[in-house]
Design a protein around this nucleic acid. Structure first.
Length: 444
RNA sequence: GUGAGUGUAGCUCAGCUGGUUAGAGCGCCUGUCUGUGGAACAGGAGGUCGAGGGUUCAAACCCCUUCACUCACCCCA
């Protein structure tokens, strides 16, 4: 009876990662963790499922439609897959007030789920790495977040990126300045945010289409479309609407933030004030950040900002908090396209492949593999019964750097032969020095 | 959720205005090479042409439905 075959398929927008991919992903993860530790952020982990009520009412109506619900038959609790790592953080901070001392610096590297339509650089299951500082109101906290982002991206070798910086309060001020209120404000932001994409004319057109009066549109446009060099933009915005109280606060915060960035040595080429940058999520209250990579444009690679009131939804009393999410998937896509992995990152973790000549030498090969492993060399011992040529081909295809050859001759001589596949160099090493010589051959 | 495009071997694709046994390159397997991979040469396996229905003497090709993927919008990492 032939077995009925089940189609091997994956849910929409979700992916498997085969070993060669995982090795690259883990490299990126390791750099990210290293830099986060360098900045004094501590790891946190939360469940993939949250109570439905924990997530609802935090992201805005549109975003909530993208939350995956998760139920089992007869389940009493309403559950949902987490949509981001920020709301779970807010819950944790409120839930463990006695255990957590402020300011709380934590990072979390975990998958999140969004039921969006998949596209390039957009998946339904993807990893985010969030770093946040809870309980710090000063702009120095926001500056650390920006410094963290630039350090990670530089460590990864990404050549061209810009952290765009704006302030939610400035956007509010723009609304005031132009005379826009209520629902129209959200539409205004949406159009302004597209400035990079559709240009000044595009924004003007959209604003008119959305029914804004001509004079209002023009006031917005003077602020948005001005051809001002990034370094002078803040001065320009201050000239235009510095008298508005909201703008005053926002500009002061931005200047403070920039001063901190200078002190911290964050290169100016990697940051830019942009009054047209808007973040979609509803909970931001102060500075906002977003990172774009010009070369392969896959959308924003980080996003974040200050959200002083979110924790208060769980805690009753609000807590000033700022942070960012790194879009690990998009960063990895960029790394892949630009091939930014160090040469040592291959398709395998194996350093030495131990070939088995025949059944009479198998036990000697097995012993050698054990010796190499004891010596700290990552070793694969061949398990099948095939010709040495086939074994070499297998090792080569897999990308193993060195093959250990141990036939009757070597056994008799008390040595082992190592062959480096990259260039075919062979050495003969006494058994006692096997691990050390193998390591030297890999490095050389 | 809205709109457009694509769907032929493991991968990338070809297949003229519908015509009989559906092709190429790469990859894979075998051999030349019974203690050695990457090259060359020779051979080989592998496809219900996404699925279902319809038109026709005849469909990979035309029509309908459906699914999947891609792109744009929306939104976002």
């Amino acid at each position: 009876m032939p077995q009925p075959k089940i189609q091997p398929r994956l849910p929409k927008g979700m992916r498997d990662f085969l070993p060669a991919d995982m090795i690259k992903r883990e490299y990126v993860f390791s750099i990210v963790r290293e830099v986060f530790h360098l900045f004094g952020f501590e790891p946190l982990q939360t469940p993939v499922l949250e109570l439905h009520e924990t997530l609802m009412g935090k992201y805005g109506e549109d975003a909530e439609k993208l939350i995956f619900n998760a139920q089992h038959p007869g389940g009493k609790e309403e559950l949902a897959l987490r949509y981001d790592l920020t709301v779970p953080l807010a819950r944790v901070v409120a839930q463990y007030q006695n255990e957590i001392s402020l300011p709380f610096r934590r990072y979390q590297l975990s998958p999140v789920w969004r039921a969006e339509r998949p596209q390039r650089g957009r998946y339904r299951e993807f990893y985010q790495c969030d770093a946040d500082i809870v309980g710090a109101a000063g702009m120095n906290a926001d500056a650390e977040i920006v410094a963290l982002i630039t350090t990670v991206l530089r460590r990864l070798g990404i050549p061209q990126f810009t952290v765009k910086i704006n302030n939610r309060k400035l956007l509010t001020a723009i609304g005031k300045y132009a005379g826009v209120e209520g629902d129209a404000l959200a539409n205004l932001y949406r159009s302004v945010d597209k400035f990079d994409k559709i240009g000044a004319d595009g924004v003007r057109e959209e604003l008119i289409q959305r029914g804004l009066p001509a004079n209002v549109t023009e006031r917005v446009m003077t602020l948005v479309a001005a051809q001002v060099a990034p370094a002078d933009r803040l001065d320009f915005v201050e000239d235009v609407m510095g008298s508005l109280p909201e703008a005053k606060v926002a500009i002061h915060e931005l200047r403070e933030l920039i001063a901190h960035l200078d002190t911290m040595g964050v290169p100016a080429e990697h940051r830019e004030f942009d009054q047209t940058m808007v973040r979609g999520l509803g909970y931001y209250t102060g500075p906002i950040f977003e990172t774009l990579i010009n070369e392969p444009n896959l959308g924003s690679v980080t996003g974040g900002g200050r959200y002083d009131d979110l924790v208060g939804l769980f805690r009753g009393e609000s807590l000033p908090t700022t942070g960012t999410a790194l879009g690990i998937e998009r960063i990895i896509d960029v790394m892949d396209i630009l091939n930014l992995y160090p040469p040592g990152i291959g398709g395998t973790v194996v350093e030495v492949f131990v070939a088995v000549f025949d059944e009479t030498t198998r036990s000697a090969s097995t012993a050698l593999a054990a010796e190499l492993r004891t010596g700290g060399v990552r070793t694969e011992l061949y398990m099948q019964d095939k010709s040495v040529g086939k074994q070499m081909a297998y090792a080569d295809k897999k990308g193993v750097p060195v093959v250990a050859l141990l036939g009757a001759d070597e056994i008799a001589a008390g040595v082992v032969k190592f062959k480096r596949l990259r260039d075919g160099v062979e050495i003969s090493a006494p058994r006692a020095e096997a691990a050390a010589q193998a390591r030297a051959l890999i490095k050389g």
